[in-house]
């Protein structure tokens, strides 16, 4: 079991003071310590954006891919070694703009991945442009007259695309986010946690104060097995009506559990040995 000290690296976080990424980083490390996720059983794949720097600050074997492409890399890893806990750190631009196609298809295939969307509704690393989750009318360097595009809801998109565990968290509630990350990874199948986080430097709309004022947790009476109700709930984004927690969960078999090639052991545990080819060649004679 790793301790927090085991997870530290020589690199100091370079996020802006107050950035939501600090809290997501803390929650992920807390979850790792609690669950014993380490270099013997887990791997982290990140995209490109402020979120992607996380690979330098957690001593967990990682792959930092290209902008938008974390999900297909993670898919390949999971298919090659399905015993690994495979986490994807991605941003709202990374996952929903450049990588939107991969996100939709990963959801419908129900790969056993845990996708954490660092959702600050802004492009931070490129110094403040509108993202797919920025609200209509949003003012940024790329939309000085206000954003004409309507925002996309990652939670709605995930439910519609077939993800089998869909949740929304708020970065700065570290204990609850830790819990959500653990539940997401426990789920067999594709898990999405849309994590609302402020960008203290460039997003003056979605501040800590905004999220603290306008979010609430889904209560015990909420039925997370009802896909239609979850879809409807995910569309709510009004003052004091932004829900947090698990929107939807179902027990469909994961992609990996349906592959006969993986029934006994991970792909990479098969010995690479000389293959008898002549019987196969006979099919071509």
């Amino acid at each position: 079991m790793p301790t927090l000290a085991d997870l530290s690296t020589p690199c100091s976080p370079n996020w802006c003071p107050g950035c939501g990424d600090f809290a997501i980083w803390a929650a992920l490390k807390n979850a790792m310590v609690r669950q014993g996720w380490d270099n013997t059983n887990s791997v982290l794949v990140a995209g490109i954006g402020c979120h992607g720097h996380i690979i330098n600050f957690i001593k967990l074997t990682s792959f930092e891919g290209l902008h938008g492409r974390a999900i297909p890399v993670a898919t390949g890893i999971k298919l090659a070694n399905h015993r690994l806990n495979v986490f994807v750190s991605t941003g709202d631009g990374d996952c929903l703009a450049e990588g939107g196609n991969h996100f939709v298809h990963a959801c419908r295939r129900n790969h056993d991945l845990t996708i954490l969307i660092h959702d600050n509704a802004i492009y931070g690393l490129t110094t403040g442009q509108t993202s797919p989750t920025s609200p209509h009318g949003f003012h940024s360097k790329s939309t000085p007259a206000g954003n004409i595009d309507e925002p996309i809801s990652p939670v709605t998109l995930a439910i519609a695309s077939g993800a089998t565990f869909v949740a929304r968290g708020y970065a700065s509630d570290i204990p609850k986010l830790t819990e959500l990350i653990i539940q997401a990874n426990d789920h067999q199948g594709l898990s999405v946690v849309d994590i609302l986080q402020p960008c203290v430097t460039f997003n003056k709309d979605y501040t800590h104060e905004f999220f603290q004022k306008n979010t609430y947790y889904l209560g015990n009476n909420y039925d997370r097995t009802n896909r239609e109700a979850a879809f409807k709930k995910s569309l709510e984004w009004d003052a004091q009506k932004i829900a947090l927690g698990i929107f939807y969960e179902s027990n469909k078999p994961s992609y990996e559990s349906q592959l006969p090639q993986l029934a006994e052991k991970p792909l990479i545990e098969n010995p690479l040995a000389r293959i008898e080819m002549n019987d196969l060649f006979k099919h071509f004679s």
């Binding site: 791997v43 794949v45 792959f63 891919g65 290209l66 492409r69 297909p72 890399v73 993670a74 898919t75 390949g76 890893i77 999971k78 298919l79 090659a80 070694n81 690994l84 196609n101 991969h102 939709v104 298809h105 792909l267 990479i268 690479l272």
Partner: peptide, 22 residues
């Protein structure tokens, strides 16, 4: 695996290879 596009194809192959698969 049939991927959703060629971008995914090469990234999946890279991911699988990173994890140790030919």
């Amino acid at each position: 695996k049939q991927p959703e596009d060629e971008i995914s194809a090469i990234n999946m192959a890279i991911g699988a290879s990173f994890a140790g698969a030919r």
